[in-house]
Amino acid sequence: MTDDDAAPSATLLSRAAQQLAVLADRQRAALLGGVLRLEEPTQGCTVPALAADQGTDLRTTARHLAALEAAGLVTVAAHRVRPRVQVLEETAGALLAALPVTALLAADPALGRLFRHGRLTGLPVLARVDERERLAALLVQLLPADRALTEGEVNAALAEVTDDVASVRRFLVEENRLTRSAGRDYRRVTP
């Protein structure tokens, strides 16, 4: 796989960054919480009620609501505010779908239990040889097949799915999916 094969689009990354930046502001995060708490079914809540709930003036409330609306987290119409927090789930789902390992797991969904949010939760003790082989076959696909790789390049590729790159690199060597030459270069083994 190359970086371009499954890299999230600039638009997706920009949307995620915008949503996170908006929510990183405590007042905006509290305001969104207020919208969720004060929301009346089918009507949302009023801007004055939100301002009172937050202990802020209407101008400050409106400014923060504008940022939340620009990020797609609320809609404001006729002084009524409705939450749209499902966009956070949609953005998270889109980011997860864009991860290289997500596409690889589609071919072997049973291995999905070893991952959380696109990250390997740890190298479990896999009693069954076929599970070890399948996991190694999946992980090695994160590495380019056509050239020698430095340890740093292998580590960078594996860091996309794990914090323990040394253990995963060792696992791939033990499973004969990665070789190491005397010159300390690594090469992906394709059976």
Rank of each mutant, 00 (worst) to 15 (best):
R180L: 12
E69M: 08
A137Y: 03
G93A: 09
S167E: 07
A71I: 04
R187P: 00
P48V: 02
T102V: 06
Y186W: 04
A136N: 04
L142A: 06
A51D: 05
L143G: 06
R180I: 02
H64S: 14
N155H: 08
A6P: 00
R188W: 02
H117I: 00
C45T: 15
V87Q: 09
V76L: 15
T2L: 15
A67W: 05
D4C: 09
A103W: 11
P100F: 07
R177P: 01
V129D: 15
T150H: 06
S167D: 11
Q43P: 00
A103D: 12
P100R: 03
V101Y: 04
E89Y: 07
A10W: 11
T190I: 06
V154T: 05
L114S: 01
L13K: 11
V47W: 12
S14A: 15
L32Y: 12
V140A: 13
V81W: 11
A17C: 11
E69Y: 03
E175C: 03
E153T: 00
G93D: 13
E151Y: 00
S167Y: 01
A6S: 14
L178H: 01
V87D: 03
T2C: 08
L178Y: 03
S167P: 00
G33R: 10
T121D: 09
A71S: 12
A182W: 09
Q19T: 05
D130S: 14
L99W: 02
A92W: 12
R169K: 08
V168F: 05
D5V: 11
D53A: 13
V189E: 10
A157K: 06
A77D: 07
L99I: 00
T60W: 04
Q141D: 14
L114G: 02
A103I: 00
E39K: 03
G72I: 01
R134D: 14
A98H: 10
D53P: 02
L126K: 04
G33D: 13
V154L: 06
L114E: 02
A148M: 04
Q141G: 11
R63K: 09
A127E: 14
P48Y: 09
A16D: 09
L65W: 10
S14Y: 11
T56C: 13
V140W: 07
A94E: 15
V22C: 15
G118N: 04
A98W: 09
R37H: 14
D185M: 05
E69G: 06
A148Y: 09
P144F: 04
R28M: 05
L65K: 09
A107R: 15
P109R: 14
V129W: 15
L88A: 02
T46I: 00
T150E: 08
L126A: 07
H79Y: 10
A145T: 02
L143W: 06
V35I: 12
V189M: 08
Q141A: 07
N176I: 00
P8S: 11
A67Y: 06
V189T: 05
G152R: 08
H79G: 03
V81G: 11
S9L: 10
L135C: 07
R177L: 01
N176Y: 04
V76M: 10
D3I: 12
G183L: 08
R134G: 04
R187I: 00
A107L: 13
A21Y: 08
D146F: 07
V87N: 03
L120E: 02
V22K: 10
L149V: 01
R134I: 01
A6Q: 09
D108L: 10
P83W: 06
A97N: 13
R37I: 03
